[in-house]
Design a protein around this nucleic acid. Structure first.
Length: 300
DNA sequence: GCTCCTTTGAAGTTA
DNA sequence: TAACTTCAAAGGAGC
């Protein structure tokens, strides 16, 4: 039964149609994230105003209007923010279609018909949304909450204990320790990362999956299936995220974290694509990614 | 406990 | 400037 389901789903995916317009456009347009820059002269709410506006405002029917107050919601958060839409109309004509999935997905998770781009009724109030990293931290003047911005990652308690033990070590070591203890300021999340954060729980619930790699594949496909307006929402969020990040950490650069994680060697990367390491489903990427034959249904 | 997997996008580095 | 690389999140798996 399980095998049958998996085969069916996999065969479906192999014949999974690309989104409408993919591969058919003759005049490629700039990517959404490039095109989605606000034009000059469009009044922008300050970040403080964004985060301290007491009441969410229903969005106008025409999202291309110069200001859209669009509080969105996640279940565990109480705040909201409003965003300014500068160029919602300047969206890419289409998006590239992702490569076939490496993981066999169930139709309810991987098949496009099951996750159409959500649409809101015209004039309906926008759902609340507060991405944690968009919430005010203590470093924002005038804000009562002493919650640090989540981009700052303090060392873990374990590391702190370890560093406490090392107090007896040499000054040089403690100096190096101090450097290591410096909280890491993380990169602001991009549009897709924000989308993943919001939708992950939903996918987990729908698909009863726990493997992040598999979930991310589903989310990647859903991202491509989103309407341009829906994607624009996340590009706008990401823009705000970067803006806030710049305000909170003016001197920060992505260079600060560059190379901090262990650099993956090309050999290792190639190894992974040529069968060196198993993925989350215990299969080898190159085998799963290869064009799959149309497998016959197998009843166990 | 570190790294990989897997996704997209931003930003860094390299040629 | 184009191409390539790294890192953001997530959590199970493997070493």
């Amino acid at each position: 039964m399980y095998k049958e389901t998996v085969y069916s789903a996999f065969n479906l995916l192999m014949h999974y149609p690309p989104p409408s317009g993919a591969g058919q456009h003759s005049q490629p347009q700039p990517p959404l994230h490039k095109a989605n820059q606000p034009p000059h002269g469009v009044p922008q709410l300050s970040l403080y105003e964004h985060f301290n506006s007491p009441h969410p405002t229903p969005a106008p029917a025409d999202i291309s209007q110069k200001q859209v107050h669009r509080p969105l919601q996640t279940p565990d958060l109480s705040g909201f923010y409003s965003l300014t839409s500068g160029s919602m109309g300047q969206l890419p004509h289409t998006v590239s279609w992702p490569s076939p999935p490496l993981y066999p997905l169930s139709p309810s998770c991987g098949y496009r018909q099951h996750f159409p781009a959500p649409t809101a009724a015209p004039g309906a109030p926008y759902p609340r949304f507060t991405h944690p990293s968009l919430m005010l931290g203590s470093s924002v003047p005038g804000h009562p909450a002493a919650i640090p911005h989540p981009a700052i990652v303090p060392p873990s308690g374990k590391q702190e204990l370890q560093s406490f033990d090392r107090n007896l070590k040499t000054q040089e070591e403690s100096k190096a320790e101090k450097e290591a203890k410096k909280p890491t300021i993380k990169k602001p999340l991009n549009a897709f990362m924000l989308y993943m954060k919001e939708m992950r729980a939903k996918v987990i619930a729908e698909c009863t999956l726990k493997e992040s790699a598999a979930i991310n594949q589903i989310l990647g496909r859903r991202w491509h299936a989103l309407s341009r307006e829906e994607q624009a929402k996340y590009y706008e969020l990401a823009r705000k995220e970067r803006q806030l990040h710049m305000q909170l950490y003016p001197g920060w650069s992505a260079r600060d974290n560059y190379g901090k994680k262990k650099r993956r060697s090309r050999e290792k990367h190639q190894e992974s694509t040529t069968g060196g390491k198993r993925n989350a489903f215990g299969t080898y990427p190159e085998k799963a990614a290869a064009p799959a034959p149309f497998l016959p249904m197998t009843v166990l």
